[in-house]
Design a protein around this nucleic acid. Structure first.
Lengths: 201, 201
DNA sequence: GGTTTACACTAGCGCTTGCTTGGTTGATCT
DNA sequence: AGATCAACCAAGCAAGCGCTAGTGTAAACC
């Protein structure tokens, strides 16, 4: 049969596939389109990937792996305070969403197209990433920086961040750093608020 | 040719289509599957809808229209304070996400599958809905209830809310009302915070 | 110098897809 | 009693799908 391990050529093909999957969606992207984009014929594609599913899995794995690495790195390099760590995570998340945009959009939109084997493997990766978030959220809660239900807060934050792929314009004036700052400011209590001005809910 | 206006049968078919689109995704749902779910043969389907695209458009239109109606109603019925209006919008959003879950999941995931004509029409509906949100956010900003960039805050909030379709379990202990309350608490400054306890960022 | 390996090609199989065509049925209206 | 009409069905077409089989070829290895 064919090779299935990590070759440099395969990585490049994965990058191109991600782009097409974003443009057309996984189901609408045919192996012939993929092959043409890669400058080969459709038959040759199956030398690099066992089947179409495996291309999808490769795209998502690449993106998730990068996000995990970047987040760990960001946490190591930042300060110890809960607010700094929260900010570092948000910034890292937005930056990876920007640089690996295609892979992440695919991960968000086409996750359900994975077969169960690939989904099992990749959900472990994703869980590891989400664990990082929950730990940082826990610290922020313990520190009194934010309040509320641990589960809900982390879901809300992840939602706000992931939703950015829908509207964020990399060419615009706002940088990932700005978004991260604004988000942290929004969820941390009483930023710039005069102490007396409290509102009842 | 065939009928394309609003018949009661068509509405029922739209509801069933929404369910299948969620289960399988638009592209993977074949007209034969749709027909079988509806208890008819695949050919008969095209008596009710011009083509497959039109079924998708019908599903999304139904969901968005309901969301808009519900949100307007909620705003009319609630109190005048910015916090009450914010809470009412969040609650209405989550409730429609729950009751019309299928239609909304389809709208979120399969929007790109719409042809440009349908997308034009439906984006007006969606814009009308998002305008409601931005107005309420503006009021909350003017009131000092929340702080930050108007554009960013509304995007973050929409993201947090829409993301709920990914993890929210209607059978669980948390009700839409609870989620709405928690979200509003999270983004409004200094809820339950002793006035002195402020943290610098 | 012969064998292996990586990568590409051509050709096409078997199947599914969205959609069309032409016709039947039973209820409703005049 | 005749006409109309919505709703459905059986049959199938043309196109496109993922994937396979078998082959060619140039570089790498022993």
């Amino acid at each position: 049969m064919n090779v299935v391990n990590e070759s440099p050529r395969r990585k490049e093909l994965t990058r191109l596939a991600a782009q097409l999957f974003v443009q057309e969606g996984f189901d609408r992207t045919t192996v012939r389109m993929l092959a043409q984009e890669m400058g080969i014929k459709s038959g040759s594609l199956f030398h690099h990937f066992r089947d179409k599913q495996e291309i999808l899995a490769a795209v998502i794995e690449e993106g998730t792996q990068n996000a995990l690495t970047l987040a760990r790195q960001a946490l190591e390099e930042c300060g110890d305070s809960a607010s700094e760590r929260l900010h570092a995570m948000a910034k890292a998340h937005l930056e990876t969403l920007l640089t690996d945009r295609n892979a992440h959009v695919v991960a968000l939109y086409e996750w359900r197209r994975l077969d169960s084997a690939a989904r099992d493997h990749l959900s472990h990766l994703r869980d590891a990433y989400e664990e990082l978030w929950e730990r940082v959220i826990d610290e922020a809660l313990a520190d009194g920086l934010i309040h509320g239900d641990r589960f809900l807060v982390s879901r809300f934050v992840m939602g706000a961040l992931n939703w950015t792929v829908r509207w964020y314009d990399p060419e615009g004036p706002r940088k990932p750093e700005d978004l991260a700052h604004e988000l942290v400011a929004m969820i941390t209590s009483s930023t710039r608020t005069p102490p007396g001005q409290s509102t009842k809910v």
